[in-house]
Every structure is written in structure tokens, then in C-alpha cells.
Simulated assay, not measured.
Amino acid sequence: MQNRERWVADTLVELADILAPALEPKSYWLCVANRYAELVGSSSIRLSAGPVVVHTDERLEKPPLAGILSEEGPGIDCHVDDKPVVDVLLDDAVTRWRRLAPAALSLGYRSAHAFPLSRREDVLGEVTILTSETAPVPVADLRLAVALADAATIGMLNHRAIAGLTRTSEQLQGALDSRVIIEQAKGLVSARLEIDPSDAFRVLRHYARANNRRLSELCELLVDRHMSASDLVGSVSHRAKRTGSRR
């Protein structure tokens, strides 16, 4: 790999850029998989993270490997044990992975590795690497592979947290805006029909239910003058009228 330091810097920045509102998990994980393919020579990558599965080589998606990697292999082992699986020669793994090893060998792969995408109690998935090389992965590259998995996991966890906070904020703001509109409409109906605010709220709620409308939608129509309080007169209860007459 040429300019290793530049590659590391660019990779870390790319994985940390999770604030884009339109960030797609599949695109993010494919980026991670491609980075592994650059790090480990002559390799094909399968990355599984929940419902998202991406590949850097179409051979992993077709027979004889199609389906096998989701049932056995280094990825499954590292997911279960939550620790990397490295430098496993496929010639020596026929007993360990009875289906995967022969299938991978038939396609020219010679060794396998896998790294968990996990952080403390959060386990997102795993990265499986099949390579045609038999030489052990250099220690420095193994450290980078682990760091890459950690950085990608942290990035995705942060994206999920930010997305969750954004949704909560939007929901709270929507509830607040709705409440303000309802209070405005309640005051308007109370003044125009000369009834108590509590009775005005009952009038609004009754009209909304009777006409299969959301209360906030009805109140918005009233506040924006697309409806008038007189349109609600037919739904005013006798009790509300009596209350108004005593004022």
C-alpha cells in the first residue's frame, strides 16, 4: 500500500463522517468493506451488519459460497466469540468448516480472517475476509484491521444515536407545536361562543371525533381562519350552553 499514513488518515475521516442526514447504512458498510479489501491484499470481503450484507466480490454471492458464509466460517466464529479469527489456512480447516473450506478452496482462496463489529455490549456484525494468500497478515495490518472495525462500529453507533435524538426532538417539537395550536383554538372558541375553556376543549374534541378529523388539524383550521367557531355550534352540548348563559 502506497502512502500508508495518508490511507489511514483518509479512512478514519471517512468513517467518522456520520453526520450527513442522508447517510445510508448500506453505503457506509460498503465503504468499510472496500477499505478492508485495500488493507488485505488479494482478498474478497463479506460484511454483515444486521439486515445489511455487502460484498466486494460477486463470487461470495453466488454458488458454491452463496449462503454458506451466513451459516459457518470465520465470520460466524468471531461473532459468537466476539474476537478476531486470523490466519486460518483453508487446507487445514476442512474439518472445522466442512462446507465453507472446500467451496472457498475451489475458487482459489487459501486463507480466511474475520473481525467483529462490536463495542462493549453492542454487537453489530462481522467482517469476513477470504484471500488467495497463505502468508500470515502482518501484525501492523492486523492492528489496523481491528482499529478499522472499532472505528466503523463507533461511527455507526454514533449515527444511530444522533438519528434517534433527532427523531425524538422532532416528535417533541411536533407535540409542542400541536399543543400551542390547540390552546389557541380553545381560547378562540371560548371567546366566540362565550363558554368556559374546558367546555371549548370538549366542543373541539367532540367535533373532531364526529367528523373523523385529528384534533390538531381541526384547531389549525380554526386558527388559520379556514373555519369559524360558528361552524362548531351544532356540536356544543346543552351543558356548555348553560354554562355560557350563566357567565
Rank of each mutant, 00 (worst) to 15 (best):
L23H: 04
A240S: 11
E183G: 03
D141V: 14
A145E: 01
V32M: 05
P51Q: 13
Y207P: 00
R242P: 02
A145I: 03
S216K: 09
D92I: 00
T56C: 06
T11E: 05
E71Q: 14
A33T: 05
V13D: 13
V233Q: 14
S111M: 09
D17I: 04
Q173T: 07
L12Y: 10
V13L: 15
Y207D: 00
I129K: 02
C219Q: 01
D150K: 09
E14Q: 14
A9N: 14
D177C: 07
C78S: 06
N211H: 14
A163G: 02
T153N: 01
L165A: 11
K83W: 14
D150M: 08
L221V: 02
T131C: 08
P102K: 09
R247A: 14
L23T: 06
T166I: 11
R179C: 00
L221W: 11
V233I: 14
I181H: 06
E58R: 13
L218H: 02
R98F: 13
R98H: 14
N3R: 13
G155F: 03
E133V: 15
S216Q: 09
R247V: 15
A151N: 07
Q184E: 13
R205A: 04
E220A: 06
E71P: 00
L47Q: 02
C78R: 01
A49M: 06
D141P: 09
T95L: 12
